[in-house]
Write a protein that binds this DNA or RNA. Structure first.
Lengths: 336, 336
DNA sequence: TTGAAAGCGCTAACAC
DNA sequence: GTGTTAGCGCTTTCAA
């Protein structure tokens, strides 16, 4: 059906090696170059990456396994990652495992069959069992956003300093005199959830505040979860005077809950949100936010992967990116 | 490095054909089955999909080209699509072209090199020029969400009845006596935008209402765009008494704008939103909505593609799914 | 610089 | 049911 290099060879009278060299940037006599290019056009030749993959033992495919595609943080990482990888002629196969370890393991296997050159994983399985096989087969594995303790030293990772991010936010609030600080976390037992909780507790401790269990809520990293969490917090007889919400969707939900309840920000309650400032645009222009550098996470991940792919020498590396506190006007000193 | 079928052959003393048949579901003598399975385990054999692809001339990869990954409607389609395709052992390579026709064309070429078995495209280029090559090469092409007129008869498609969706919503409002109905559309010149506008105009016409240009706004299918559009609508001296917003993100933005301006729904303004009911959860429980069957769109697309892949016979098919009007309490009769 | 030839790991006749 | 064998389209020695 489709033309092959053999066809080009026949058409031009040149040997296969010459044609191949032409495509791989080797030096080819000018008149042969012209000849080849004419034949390519005439026969509508399209290189066959599959055949090349078989021969070179490199598929130029990176497998990406994520817990959920319907999450703004994740999709923006994927976009910026894919951008760079594709520029380097790597394709990305994305597998959404719906936060299901079983599906995650299946995805790993699926990708291994396809001989992906590398694996990027925002892990659901906190034990890391699903990564045994790829690690054994020697392909580079890169964790993003979530570390897996048992894999320390065996894989590279790109994460943010979650502890710092959370304590920075909470310190901001304690600095303004707040002592009753609500925290809306993601799903229990996730790496990021735990780390952000640690940062929160550290900051409270630093300020000599004993944590109140009721003030700590889990919003599942969803808009609805954030909404619910804040609804619940507001129902407390002695409710928080300040609030820290730990992802974009939950921040949105939280703001909606506050509006629904007629709670003014920051007059009645101080709020620090999270992520994706640009999407808020004009909507909450003055929200104080912790911003994760999602574009950088994607970029770093892609580059680190490309690095692992080319330099066999390099050991594992953990890149920790820092967050930024963007000052808005959604926080104010506690009224005494 | 990795074990091959040849290794299995050597290990078991069986021929290659037997091993191959075992993996492809052929009948193999029981004792050989056991033998093979033992060897697989011992040698950590993993099938090489790349080699298989080269031989069978089927990559079992579907290329998916979309305008934007950061859009809830799109990601939910992709998730449900990928789900089914992967179950049938097809991998999905997603290319986000950022609504840029140039990138879209590059993506097509990229995927063609990789010998994808099929192409699913939510098109940015409204001329369809980017699909010439894949069409010529004979691989199945499936459009989703947006039709391309010049390709009618040449490609299959899965879309929703946008005209009906919009007129259904607007009829609901005119039926309640509203005559000043605001419309928040996506980006200008998109298929869905045009169709939904048509539906809106049809419904107005039906009700004997002359359209007011000021009431028709473009919100770019983003949250911020929806917010802005409603801000602008509210500034009109004679502002609408009802509102129809045509995607999820814009609905969110619109609701936020209304809240910010202290406009009560439905007391002051009737609203019909769009999409993704489940994400609203408890937040806007009573919003009247036009729901697109995104899961079905994904499912239909995947199945239609699988169909095209197996039955060479079938011609092009356009599947039009219908939307549903979910009654809430965000609309009420116009106060006379 | 160019060409001939071997082989990447698999499938599918075909003969047994 | 099983084994032998010839490629799929490409890259890459090696020799010319």
């Amino acid at each position: 059906m489709a033309a092959t290099m053999k066809d080009l060879s026949r058409e031009t009278g040149l040997g296969l090696a010459t044609i191949s060299k032409y495509f791989n940037g080797g030096t080819v006599r000018e008149k042969n170059r012209v000849l080849i290019e004419a034949a390519v056009k005439k026969l509508h030749y399209v290189p066959n990456e599959v055949a090349r993959s078989l021969k070179t033992q490199h598929s130029r495919v990176i497998g990406v396994i994520i817990p959920e595609l319907s999450n703004a943080f994740i999709t923006s990482i994927i976009s910026s990652m894919e951008d760079i990888l594709r520029k380097h002629d790597y394709a990305v196969i994305v597998c959404d495992c719906r936060s299901d370890p079983k599906r995650e393991k299946d995805a790993v296997e699926f990708l291994l069959h396809r001989r992906v050159d590398g694996l990027i994983n925002m892990a659901t399985d906190t034990t890391g069992a699903h990564l045994k096989a790829p690690l054994a087969s020697g392909i580079p594995v890169l964790l993003i956003d979530r570390l897996i303790e048992s894999l320390r030293g065996k894989v590279s990772a790109v994460i943010i300093d979650n502890v710092h991010a959370a304590s920075q936010a909470v310190e901001k609030l304690t600095g303004l005199g707040h002592r009753q600080i609500g925290l809306v976390l993601g799903s229990p037992n996730l790496y990021t959830t735990n780390q952000r909780l640690t940062g929160y507790l550290n900051a409270l401790n630093e300020a000599g505040i004993k944590p109140t269990e009721e003030y700590i809520r889990y919003g599942d990293y969803t808009m609805d979860g954030g909404y619910q969490a804040v609804q619940d917090l507001l129902k407390l007889k002695n409710h928080p005077t300040a609030l820290f919400v730990t992802n974009f969707e939950m921040t949105l939900g939280a703001m909606l809950a506050l509006q629904h309840n007629g709670v003014r920000v920051p007059e009645d309650l101080s709020v620090i949100g999270f992520d994706k400032l640009e999407l808020f645009g004009e909507i909450f222009p003055n929200l104080t936010l912790i911003r994760q550098p999602q574009l950088s996470i994607g970029r770093e991940s892609a580059n680190l992967m490309l690095n692992m792919l080319s330099n066999e020498e390099s050991g594992c590396r953990i890149v920790t990116l820092t967050t930024e506190l963007t000052e808005g006007s959604s926080v104010r000193p506690l009224k005494k």
